[in-house]
Computed example of a mutant assay.
Amino acid sequence: MKCPYCGFDDSKVIDSRPKENKIKRRRECTKCLARFTTFEAVEKPLLMVEKKSGMYEPFDSSKLIKGIYSAIKKRPVTYDQVEDIANYVENHFANDLKTVAKSREIGELVLEKLREIDLIAYIRFASVYEEFTDIASFVEMISELERKNTAPDDKLLEVNENA
């Protein structure tokens, strides 16, 4: 890191701490001993979303957050949880070094997270995402959720059998 005062190429880190999704570092030039602050942020690759129509557009987390918000209206889901879902989706593709994601993959990741947080929000999001065309498909999804939530837990059965 070049010193902003003398231009020398070497500095040492005196203090480092996280601040607003960045890392704030206090540095000291090893030549002139001047101190200065730098900020580090992780650079994420540009993620393109392939829409159902075959068109591409840049990933926009605010657009995803807006879509999730319509599903969580009047539900006990916090803004931080919604933001965490959007970050999870973006990081999922960045960690796999993918620069293109199908909108379907994004929707499935959101559904996975919403299911863990709030089943009503999950159903609301799924009703738009899955494009239900009739009541039967909507009822089928709810029935499937009920079956999964009332299915006996194998670990509980194992504990009860050993008692």
Rank of each mutant, 00 (worst) to 15 (best):
K22Y: 10
N160T: 02
N162V: 13
E130P: 03
F36I: 08
D10T: 11
R124P: 04
N87F: 14
P18T: 10
K102H: 15
C29Q: 04
S137G: 07
L33K: 09
Y122I: 02
L64V: 12
R25V: 00
D134K: 12
A41Q: 15
V128N: 07
G7E: 00
V128Q: 06
N87H: 14
S16F: 04
K155F: 14
L114N: 04
R25F: 01
R25N: 04
I123V: 15
D96E: 15
Q81S: 09
M141V: 05
I72V: 15
I72N: 03
A136V: 07
A34C: 01
I65M: 11
F36C: 00
F93Q: 10
V110Y: 02
E20Y: 07
A136P: 01
P58S: 12
E20M: 06
K31C: 03
A34V: 01
F132C: 10
R25Y: 02
C6K: 05
T78I: 10
N95L: 11
D9I: 03
N21A: 13
N149L: 14
F125E: 06
E90K: 12
E83R: 13
D9M: 03
L109W: 00
T30Q: 07
F36R: 01
L64H: 05
V49P: 06
I117M: 12
L46S: 10
D118W: 12
S137F: 01
K66V: 00
D154K: 15
P45R: 13
A126M: 05
D10R: 13
Y88R: 02
I106L: 09
I85Q: 10
N160E: 14
A34F: 03
L119V: 11
G54A: 11
T78F: 08
A151Q: 14
R26W: 02
R147I: 05
T30N: 09
K102I: 00
K2P: 02
K19F: 13
G7N: 08
E158D: 15
S70M: 10
K52I: 05
E105M: 01
V159N: 04
A94T: 13
F39E: 06
L145R: 01
E83H: 08
S103P: 08
I123R: 09
V77R: 09
M55P: 00
E131K: 13
E50I: 11
G7A: 05
R147Q: 14
E116A: 15
K51C: 05
T30F: 02
I142W: 00
L114K: 03
A151M: 14
M55F: 03
I85H: 09
L97N: 15
G7Q: 08
V77D: 12
A41M: 11
D60R: 10
R25W: 02
E158W: 06
D60M: 02
S16E: 03
T30S: 08
L156E: 14
T99Y: 05
R25G: 03
N162M: 10
I72E: 04
K98W: 06
L157F: 07
C32T: 02
D10G: 03
K51N: 08
F125A: 06
Y79P: 00
E108A: 05
L111T: 02
K102W: 04
P4D: 05
A136K: 13
E144M: 04
A41W: 02
E108H: 08
E40Y: 11
E20L: 07
S127D: 10
N95Q: 14
Y88K: 13
L111S: 08
L109C: 07
K12A: 07
L145A: 00
E116P: 00
R35N: 10
E43M: 10
